[in-house]
Write a protein that binds this DNA or RNA. Structure first.
Lengths: 110, 110
DNA sequence: CCTTCCAATCGTATATTTACGATGAACTAA
DNA sequence: TTAGTTCATCGTAAATATACGATTGGAAGG
């Protein structure tokens, strides 16, 4: 990147959508979210046993999901419990729902 | 990446979701899709005038969206008209819908 | 044939992502 | 205090993504 994106204007929704999409753009993060979204409320340790990746790598992915706001962590020494961030999850659901619904069928005859 | 992801097993949905999410992970691609999803069926030239980026860069983003299957191109010399790929769009919509709906509220009391 | 127009592709430079092992920090238990 | 457990962070290497200008390819028009 020789230039930043700062000289291009994006709407709040465009930035929010792309940020969430980026968080979802790796299959292992989809897998983690699926595990957390299911009934299993997971500790990191459970994730590391379920997913054949280095613990540090999984921790990195969890951090990415945290920063995207899709999950939240709850320290429970000596473990940390991760859960879906319900509020932001609902927001993301709404954003994607609106985005995909915006397609006007038959708009141009392609 | 020192190792490929090939030694980790992902479901078809996990791979499909992450691939679509990756295509959506850049704000300019969200913008392009919004423009195409609206009533305006665009030629590349219109996009380059609407988006302050080099023509080659926009072409690269269009290629990414093409490869993700979200849009389709129609050669109309000397121009090319791009449209939403309705069938895949609907598939993506369904995938994301199911994904976000899979969250079980109250599952773990976080 | 030659030029013009439009879009794709090439070549390149830089930034980010992804993965790993190693180390560090915090708490528990002996 | 001394280990042991759990997870985050650091440091690093390789792959991928992003952006640009320059070039190429193909069709239309002179």
């Amino acid at each position: 990147m020789q230039r930043t994106l700062s000289d291009i204007s994006y709407s709040t929704d465009e930035v929010a959508l792309s940020a969430i999409a980026k968080a979802l753009s790796h299959p292992v993060r989809i897998k983690i979210l699926r595990l957390l979204a299911g009934e299993a409320c997971c500790f990191t340790g459970e994730l590391t046993s379920l997913i054949p990746m280095a613990q540090s790598t999984i921790s990195q992915h969890l951090k990415a999901l945290l920063e995207a706001g899709l999950i939240q962590g709850e320290i429970n020494p000596p473990k940390v419990k991760y859960c879906i961030h319900r509020e932001n999850w609902a927001k993301a659901q709404a954003l994607f729902g609106e985005f995909f619904a915006s397609e006007k069928s038959g708009g141009c005859g392609c």
